[in-house]
Every structure is written in structure tokens, then in C-alpha cells.
């Protein structure tokens, strides 16, 4: 138990912060504690959660994937077109995942083969993919996505839990297993922690980075599918700015922007915290302008813990010593 406590210290901390936030919202409006509100929170963390766990893989390698918001739009458009033209919904889902993988792979190509800085490379594809989305649709939304597709994600379990919540949890579980139980996971941490050392250890750095960007693309594709099912339409402007929230969720969950540090569990709680915050502020009816202020403060505060950790450890050590003397 103690081992888990130290290993997932950050994750537990974020979870506690989330609970405290929940308590505060409940105190201000008891309605917050309703089962339906809980469901709403989980539903609303799905998109950001999926995007965050994807972008976390890119961040783990010391990179970033700014193009996720745009990949998200393209996948939505592609799958919407497939469905509207009568493709089998499961084939359409596969097609959507494939689109995500290919777009992620292109990011990987830019970062590893052309050796572009990830920030610049994905800044480029961000605009490129958005442009493709506009060109493909001519700016017009794709509508009337059939229910046969939408029900795959929108269906409900008893208690009102939507299938897409289950899908998100499944993605997080898979991400957790990849990171903690497979060679790929170790390689991702090694490359992010010290790329040169990883290379000198015989780690295939290029392959590892490709995997990171492909996973990022694939998770984004799943998010795109969920969005399409939820709205029943896709448009080129979808997902603008979503990458910032995804980065925030990953960062709150303890992902280091320098790479090499971060867990799926942490990112899950990061996304959960943001969802609690979002729903909670609507529930207590906070003015929209102030919501930005509060969200910003929470992100800064959450990130500050990283730096405070050392100070606190030093403080307690000194304290202990003084008491023993």
C-alpha cells in the first residue's frame, strides 16, 4: 500500500483536489451531488480525456502534438462522409481510426525523419490538417449521420452510462497497460527522459517517437468518433483550441512538458478535475468570463505542486531533525 502511495503520489493528490472541488461545489449547490450530475461530468470529460491521453504520449517523448484539434475535425468529417454514403458503421469506425493513425504517422515522419522540432512540425500540420478539413468540406458541415453509427457510441447501459464513457475508460486502461507493462512503455519513458542515453542504449528512438504520434492520432480519432456520434454532424471548425485543454489535463495529471514523466492515471484525473470544474461552475452559475480566470488559476496551482514538492520534502526533513534534537 505504501508503495502505491509513493508511486502514484501525484495521481492521488490530483484525485484529492478533485474530491475537494466536488465538496466545495456541493456545498454551494447540493444539486451537484446528484447521480445525473456525476454522469454529466463523466460524459463531458470523455473528449478532453481521450485527447489528453493521446497528447500525453507525444509529450512523454519530449514532444508535443498541436494538431490534435484538427485531426479530430478531419476524422469526424471522414467518418461522417463514409456513414452518410452508407458504409457499414463498423467499417467507418475502422476508417476513422486509420485516418487518425495516418495523420499521426505524418507527424512522426516530420519529427523523426525530417528532424523538425515537434512544436513547429505540429504547428504546421495543425494548419495543414485544418486546411484539408476546409477543402474537403468546402466549409459546409456534413450532416445526417445515421443512428446505426451514432448508437454504437451513444447507447446507454443501465443507470444511464453512455457507451462512449466505457470507450474512454477502455482507452485509458489500454494506455496504462502500454505505459507500465510493455517494452514500448519503457522505451517511451527512456526516450523522453534522455533521448541520447536511450539511443546509446540501443533503443529505437525513431520507432518509439512514431508510436507516440500514432497513438496520439489514434486517441484523437476515437475522440472524433465520439464527437460525431454525439452531434450527428461534422464540420471543419470542430475542435479549434481543444489541444490547449488536453495539454492542461495532462499537465495537471503530472505529465512533465519536458518529457519522460507522466501516467495514464494522472491524465485521467487531470481530465476529471477539469470536467468537475467545468460542470461545477455551470451548476453554481459562475459568469463565463470568470470561468476562464478560475480555470487558469487551477492549472497554475496544480502545476506549481511539481515545484513545491522539493521544498516541502526539505521542510519536513528539517522539521523532523529539529524535533529529534
Amino acid at each position: 500500500m505504501k508503495a502505491i502511495g509513493t508511486k502514484y503520489k501525484r495521481e492521488i493528490l490530483v484525485f484529492l483536489a478533485t474530491v475537494i472541488l466536488g465538496v466545495v461545489f456541493t456545498a454551494l449547490n447540493p444539486n451537484f451531488l446528484m447521480w445525473r450530475t456525476m454522469l454529466t461530468i463523466f460524459q463531458q470529460m470523455v473528449l478532453n480525456g481521450l485527447l489528453a491521453v493521446g497528447i500525453m504520449f507525444a509529450i512523454l517523448t519530449g514532444g508535443i502534438d498541436l494538431s490534435i484539434g484538427c485531426t479530430f475535425a478531419i476524422v469526424g468529417i471522414a467518418v461522417a462522409n463514409c456513414c452518410v454514403k452508407g458504409m457499414n458503421p463498423f467499417l467507418a469506425i475502422l476508417a476513422g481510426l486509420l485516418v487518425g493513425v495516418v495523420l499521426g504517422m505524418f507527424n512522426g515522419f516530420l519529427v523523426t525523419n525530417l528532424k523538425l522540432q515537434p512544436f513547429i512540425a505540429t504547428l504546421g500540420t495543425m494548419s495543414l490538417y485544418r486546411g484539408v478539413a476546409y477543402v474537403v468540406t468546402g466549409g459546409a458541415p456534413v450532416t445526417n449521420v445515421p443512428d446505426s453509427f451514432r448508437n454504437i457510441f451513444n447507447g446507454q447501459l443501465p443507470g444511464g452510462i453512455r457507451y462512449y464513457v466505457i470507450v474512454m475508460i477502455a482507452v485509458f486502461v489500454i494506455a496504462h497497460i502500454i505505459l507500465s507493462k510493455t517494452r514500448t512503455g519503457d522505451y517511451l519513458y527512456a526516450v523522453g527522459g534522455n533521448e541520447e542515453a536511450a539511443k546509446l542504449s540501443g533503443v529505437n528512438v525513431a520507432k518509439t517517437k512514431y508510436i507516440a504520434y500514432i497513438v496520439s492520432g489514434a486517441c484523437t480519432a476515437v475522440a472524433g468518433l465520439v464527437m460525431l456520434a454525439s452531434l450527428g454532424s461534422a464540420e471543419a471548425t470542430a475542435g479549434i483550441g481543444y489541444e490547449t485543454n488536453a495539454i492542461a489535463a495532462a499537465a495537471i495529471g503530472g505529465t512533465s512538458m519536458a518529457g519522460g514523466r507522466g501516467t495514464a492515471l494522472g491524465t485521467f484525473f487531470g481530465a476529471l478535475l477539469l470536467a468537475v470544474l467545468k460542470v461545477g461552475m455551470v451548476v453554481i452559475n459562475v459568469d463565463s468570463f470568470w470561468q476562464y480566470v478560475v480555470t487558469g488559476l487551477i492549472i497554475i496551482a496544480a502545476s506549481y505542486f511539481e515545484f513545491m514538492k522539493g521544498d516541502i520534502a526539505a521542510f519536513t526533513a528539517r522539521h523532523k531533525k529539529e524535533r529529534s534534537m
Binding site: 459562475v286 459568469d287 468570463f289 470568470w290 470561468q291 480566470v293 496551482a301
Partner: peptide, 11 residues
């Protein structure tokens, strides 16, 4: 607490 007090006056 800080966040909530801010939101309260914001509202």
C-alpha cells in the same frame, strides 16, 4: 478556497 471565493464574487 481561493478559486471558489473568486467565482463567488465573479458570479
Amino acid at each position: 478556497a481561493m478559486a471558489v471565493s473568486l467565482t463567488a464574487c465573479g458570479a
